[in-house]
Design a protein around this nucleic acid. Sequence first.
DNA 1: CAGTGGTCTAGACCACATC
DNA 2: ATGTGGTCTAGACCACTGG
Lengths: 246, 246
Amino acid sequence: MGTTQLDTVPEPKYWHLKTVLTDALDSEFAVGEILPNERELAARFGVARATLRQALEQLELEGRLQRRRGVGTTVAPPRVGVAVGDAEHSWPGAGADSWQPVDSVLAAPPAAVARLLGTAADAVVHTVRRTRGNHGQPVAAELLYVPADSVPSLTAIGALTGAGRARAVLRELQRLDLEGQDRSVELGSARADDAKQLDRLPGSPVLLVTTRYYANGRTVAVAVATYRADTCKLTFGDSGMQLLAG
Amino acid sequence: MGTTQLDTVPEPKYWHLKTVLTDALDSEFAVGEILPNERELAARFGVARATLRQALEQLELEGRLQRRRGVGTTVAPPRVGVAVGDAEHSWPGAGADSWQPVDSVLAAPPAAVARLLGTAADAVVHTVRRTRGNHGQPVAAELLYVPADSVPSLTAIGALTGAGRARAVLRELQRLDLEGQDRSVELGSARADDAKQLDRLPGSPVLLVTTRYYANGRTVAVAVATYRADTCKLTFGDSGMQLLAG
DNA sequence: CAGTGGTCTAGACCACATC
DNA sequence: ATGTGGTCTAGACCACTGG
């Protein structure tokens, strides 16, 4: 007789709290405004602080809130769209993009990267670090892995350090004939060094964008970019989008 | 004298725990194996259960673990690559894809979708629900929003229900001349209904893929797909990738 | 039924930012 | 020095799965 499921499972408190807070954020708070502190919010809703925090955590995950230790919890602005596939098949650092080279060293990449590159697990490769900003805020940190034999004409690099060395590697890469590239996006948590560059705590959720560059019939470079998941919305596709995107 | 930063900040316990567990997963456990239960693991490491759970949570976020209430915590298989941009510019449901239409109703879309479609906030649109599976496991749930005037020749739909109705809407859409599309990817948390379809708890982390379809010089449809963030790695780009991907 | 993970509490102390 | 969010504890009970 079609009893629609009423008096069904009791909704968890933190889940209900989340909806209440979401509505409040929509109607009563302006972007950038500081919320009451966690102890007061918990008291106001009659829950333990840990429960309140569980709700805040989800809201931060959804990009609605921003929490900073020692400061407070603020209402986050809508996520910024960050173009990831704006130009089809282009080398990193080509033209004027929003990336900034930081430095470069020779180091053994993580096992997963070595597998993609087809190099031995302990082989060292050029490792270029870049960061990407948006309106003054850091949004991404990237490590680009380039085996030495991908850029054979790169010589006399020993004398270079820092950003200069990073630029030298990118320059050599751009001389190759890019045959293709592909990407994957997955969820991860920020490693300690990336977290510092992104101004977040270690372990905060990030979007990992892995790009593989093909030339000469093989994989010549792999880039792993770490985007702040709380503030970023990655955009792909036709250039027309950014103009219309809300 | 180059004192490398020793006795620096005390690493949080859950962070250290995560590292230890990660190493253990790499060396001592096989995919699918069941870990000791949380109370025992906590005791074994000499921490409170809540602290242990904080570490497990992150590992689940990274796709290393899978936790199921009433069952236990198991070692997760590597993330499956799910093609999102495999075919350039194609209508949903065109050809043989891994999506399965579920049903379709007329309903008012969320405000954010209405904004993308350029419809009034309370205007109803065709809302098609589809699900996507991979090796028998559900990986994504999608809601496709199609304003009625995007498919003017769609008539006599009132008699249809369920999957048949969903297919009818998709069929009409495919008759249009697709001019372009673009996508965005962001982090979200699963709504209650999506969570049920994905066999997850409400609030679990998901990747939201928003696709916008252009035809006749305007946005004719918007799709919001919800992918399980714990098990999915979204792949874009050249078709050659999937063959080589590890 | 017993055992699992999920939720919740009421405290405590710590790291950090700001004044 | 004060106030914030971040970490941690030791418990309790609930919801779910499986034999």
